[in-house]
């Protein structure tokens, strides 16, 4: 541990900007996330929430600025097992992949098991424990395709949790999940955050539900990102919030002759 007194900086984004071809997504995004933070990221469709996470993962290269994870530039970062990521659409191979919940969770123990080795009993037990944590132990042997959307999402969360990451990046984990499951997923995340000090950054379209769990809220809007304080969050929840940078940005676009 480099510094025992101050919580250590888990994510640091400096002057981050990104554009797809000629379409600017956002610019001048800068923030720090500290160990133990539970941050919610909100913003309209197309405001770049998922893009932000992919920049943090180093999957996309920024147009400007940079990202560091655990104090290291993301381009040279290689301790990926410390980071857990849950993508918006779950699995890239689709929901009907012929594998059991346990097989899927065990797969994420790769760095534990080791290259070219097969999982042992202890790894399978670990996977079962992770499934138990999300309330899916009874479904360990079930095929992914036979589970409901909410159950599948829990399995995928267990897969991320099994390798005991220090940072969780979640892209709308409660999307398409029924209200009760949303509540229990959020309760679980909140508990992991409090009890294990897990740092979480969660993109969500439904901040009203998550408002009680998160300790910080970031808002992506009109090409930039701001952190909302308590009062702004209350306004946001009552749909009155105006993005502070919006007027600024409009002016800039006008002055730049629409170049932006």
């Amino acid at each position: 541990m480099p510094d025992a007194l101050l919580p250590s900086e888990v994510i640091r984004a400096d002057n981050l900007g990104f554009q797809y071809a000629d379409t600017p997504v956002f610019s001048h995004v800068g923030f720090s996330l500290f160990a133990g933070d539970f941050a919610g990221v909100i913003g309209a469709n197309g405001s770049g929430k998922s893009t932000l996470l992919r920049l943090l993962l180093g999957e996309l290269g920024p147009a400007s600025g940079g990202v560091s994870l655990f104090g290291r530039d993301v381009r040279r970062f290689d301790e990926w097992p410390r980071v857990g990521y849950l993508a918006q659409n779950g699995l890239s191979s689709g929901a009907n992949f012929p594998a059991t919940a346990e097989e899927i969770v065990t797969a994420n123990l790769f760095s534990d098991i080791g290259f070219l080795r097969l999982p042992k009993k202890s790894h399978r037990e670990k996977a079962r424990k992770a499934l138990a944590r999300v309330g899916m132990e009874a479904f360990a042997g079930r095929m992914l395709g036979s589970l409901s959307g909410g159950q599948r999402q829990r399995v995928l969360l267990a897969r991320v949790l099994v390798s005991e990451p220090e940072l969780l990046l979640l892209d709308e984990p409660t999307n398409g999940v029924d209200a009760e499951t949303v509540a229990s997923l959020l309760a679980l995340l909140s508990r992991l955050n409090r009890e294990k000090g897990l740092t979480i950054m969660m993109v969500t379209h439904d901040i009203a539900r998550a408002a009680e769990c998160v300790s910080r809220v970031f808002c992506l809007e009109d090409g930039s990102m701001v952190e909302l304080d308590k009062a702004q969050l209350r306004e946001e929840l009552s749909h009155k919030h105006k993005h502070p940078a919006r007027e600024d940005e409009r002016r800039r676009i006008k002055e730049g002759g629409g170049k932006s």
């Binding site: 990926w80 899927i104 797969a107 097969l118």
Partner: peptide
Amino acid sequence: KELFYVTLDERAARLA
């Protein structure tokens, strides 16, 4: 195990 994870989810496999 490697082929399984890469087939299941290439991005997650890279992170793991």
